[in-house]
Design a binder for these strands. Sequence first.
DNA 1: GTCTATACATCGATAGAC
DNA 2: GTCTATCGATGTATAGAC
Lengths: 195, 195
Amino acid sequence: MNESANRVATDPRSDRREAKIAGILSEAWDLARRDGLGAISLRDLAGAVGLRQPSLYVYFESKLALYDAMFADGYRQLLAYLDERDYTGTPRDALIRFTRDLITFASEDGVRYQMLFQRPIPGFEPTTESFALALEFYERATTVAANAGIHHQADIDLFAAVINGLSHQQVANDPGGRRWADLAEQAVDMLLAPR
Amino acid sequence: MNESANRVATDPRSDRREAKIAGILSEAWDLARRDGLGAISLRDLAGAVGLRQPSLYVYFESKLALYDAMFADGYRQLLAYLDERDYTGTPRDALIRFTRDLITFASEDGVRYQMLFQRPIPGFEPTTESFALALEFYERATTVAANAGIHHQADIDLFAAVINGLSHQQVANDPGGRRWADLAEQAVDMLLAPR
DNA sequence: GTCTATACATCGATAGAC
DNA sequence: GTCTATCGATGTATAGAC
């Protein structure tokens, strides 16, 4: 290969590094779906990407750093997923679609849902940089809710609990299905009903 | 001690065995609260009850059998907790109290809540006998809900999701507190509002 | 950047004496 | 029923050659 050909916007060396990291993360999600989030083995992970186990330390300084990268990766996937959709239209309709999309996103990958919303790995806390992505998501969620009239803290708490509960039931009892996702409209109308 | 004194209803030998098992389970919950449910070590557990690790196999034939006993123990605690309370009165009031009590129960012990409602241990499935206790609980819950007019499957699904979501938020964000438990009345009125 | 080799800890489980 | 001793597997992490 020609080491200096195609000198584009970014450094090709760090491009390749980023691509490798992306490949490792992709395999890490596969392993997590197979064995559980807490049971990822660095040996298995290295084998899945054609490396020996110590070579992983070139890309992640520890297993917790790998988890942190997965946490950030999952939130980037969620934000990209939301970017592809539009939440214009009436506030009620937007909130219904937002809710349904969140449940669907959770349903598509239960392990990813666990990582983002259940925090099931003892000893793992996301770094500030990674957690910023989570905050970005919460900001978007509260904005869509606020547009539909959900302002008080108690209402926001209830809204968050309902979305979380629907997502959890969907992932736990009907993974990949729509049984709870299809309750989004009913749930939102319930939340928005005047008291 | 006098080995044959006080010969009561049950065999004293199996009484002692049951008491020992209860002690082991109690320590297992303590360890789970400290290290996480999936990170219980049989060595630590044995040490906590004054035994060596292999001696635990006298009482549990495997680690999964220990988890199964914890699962059953947790549901027995929940059923006993509900037995102490009464859910008479108007159906709405009963459902509010039932909901609030469930969230409170979850809040009192996040690890127990995980074991009963989140199933976070890869490879663990409760035995039929243990799962029967879970079914007993679900029967009681649906009865209280049905008395308040929640009959259709979609309504039951939504009710279960709301309780689960409130409990999860309470455990995850305000353990031991009441922030989401105090939303029980609002949540139930929302669920019972005519559409 | 990748490798071999290895350190070092911990785990669940079993064998067999007492 | 409890113990000592130990097996075999697995885990993360590091040292150092190439």
